[in-house]
Amino acid sequence: MKGPTGWVKLGLLVASLAVGVALPYLVDQFLVGIVTLALITGLFAMSIDLLAGYGGLVTLGQAGISAAASYGVAYMSVKAGAGHLAQVGVGLLAGLIVSAVFAVMIMRSSGVYFMMITLAQGMIIWGLSIRLTRITGAENGLPGVDRPEFLSLYWQYYWFVLAVVLICSAMLYVIVRSPFGLALEGLRESESRLLVLGYNTSLQKFYAFMVSGFFATVAGILLVYLNQFISPSSAHLTASALGVLQTILGGVGTLVGPMIGSFIVVYLRNVVSQDFERWPTLMGLLFIVVVLFARRGLVGELSERWRAWLTRRGLAVPLR
């Protein structure tokens, strides 16, 4: 533990873990469902943050990958009537194959070109989900994806999602602090320097995209079992863009930020909208305020101010 920052972080972590585990005892079914959703979309946004925040590669097609995984699960469940193991297996496979194909396509691009290619990739999945009626059910989607017996109740599934998201978060935490993660940051700061240093940046992007795609796949599988339904709108650009917005709102390159951003967006969309019809306006205002006054996102800005406060009191040394 390094000074007060470490203790604050530890305290927040323990407190949120305690609340997280005890949640089904504290609030009703509806709110538990909302938190489950927020955790899953949070994991999705974290997978975007890995690329955008650490690698400087803003993707606009991530929803295509998670939707491919969802469709894999839903197809095996609804159309093929396979067991849950096969469903998850096919879901994983679908997500990873799509990630691999996409990764090969983007590994030599960066910046705006990267964004445009990923945008097109996401919309290809959307287009396929509209067109391949026999597999995807087109607009009507695939309803009736049942969860396994031991996860059928809402709180059982909540705890399962909590555990999976925690494990994935820990993995992401380790990844961004590993040499691989640091090299990824190097990619964001200056690709040409990294090239000079002898890094194969194309391969690096391929791996980063695959790792990110894996977490998006997990999120897609969790989501389809939560909603028990999948339709083309899950693959649409708006779904991808919402993930990016959650990431920006919470703080790019913080990992915990996208999760918090996701909680805010889900809360606005599902709870505030009950009483406030113009909730998209509220969300828009929130984004404007964040972009204008907290460019690092909520978490980025808060931690920056915390560090500045500590520095002023001589409790910490400035980072840069």
Binding site: D28, Q29, S231
Partner: peptide, 23 residues
């Protein structure tokens, strides 16, 4: 009654219908 917005999106509608029935 309570009128809820689905945004024309099936996923949102499913979340909202759970809320209406359960909550």
């Amino acid at each position: 009654w309570r009128v809820e917005d689905t945004g024309g999106d099936p996923d949102t509608a499913l979340q909202k219908v759970d809320e209406l029935v359960q909550n």
